[in-house]
């Protein structure tokens, strides 16, 4: 193999590191996107026997958003294997216990159950907050676009800006605000 072909191969099979911000994202819809990068489905060289998956770093997993009343209604099932060992844990309980668990399970569930799945999962790194170890953030060279815009809440906007914002009308002086 000539030198040119060798580096061409090296560049083709280079493992890219992506970052994904989970803030206000639906974990189940995000999982479908993250899965593609983890397995390398976005590459033209993809083949199921081909080790071409990338690494995805998820940050802010504590601030994911579930749909409807999923926090209260979605249950995560576990069975210890012993009689009477079945447990159903609600999503909010799981999330309180481990803020990375829901996104991890979502990605795991998005992939087909085969021998490759557990190895592919090793390439998914999840952090509950924004702080990532320095050596990991240095590897990252691409950002996966978020599926939804993160809404800005009124209490996050500074009081000055709120005051400056043009108003349609002013309340009368004697109007009692509850």
């Amino acid at each position: 193999m000539s030198a040119a072909k060798r580096v061409q191969q090296w560049a083709t099979f280079a493992r890219t590191w992506h970052i994904f911000d989970c803030k206000w994202q639906d974990p189940y819809q995000s999982a479908e996107v993250i899965k593609k990068y983890l397995m390398g489905l976005h590459k033209p060289i993809y083949h199921s026997m081909n080790d071409c998956g990338d690494v995805v770093v998820c940050i802010n997993s504590r601030e994911i958003a579930l749909r409807g009343n999923d926090w209260r209604q979605r249950a995560y099932f576990h069975h210890t294997g012993y009689p009477g060992g079945a447990t159903w844990t609600l999503a909010w309980e799981v999330h309180n216990k481990d803020p990375t668990m829901i996104i991890k399970k979502a990605v795991y569930k998005a992939m087909r159950g085969n021998l490759q799945r557990r190895h592919t999962m090793q390439r998914l790194l999840i952090y509950p907050g924004e702080e990532i170890p320095e050596d990991i953030i240095q590897n990252v060279s691409n950002q996966i676009r978020q599926l939804r815009l993160v809404p800005t809440r009124l209490d996050h906007i500074s009081e000055e800006e709120v005051k400056k914002f043009p108003k349609v009308m002013d309340y009368p002086q004697d109007y009692v605000l509850k």
Partner: peptide
């Protein structure tokens, strides 16, 4: 003009 996985064994530079 490009680098990938700087701290890994599979680092690739362009």
């Amino acid at each position: 003009i490009g680098e990938v996985g700087k701290n890994t064994l599979l680092a690739c530079y362009r």
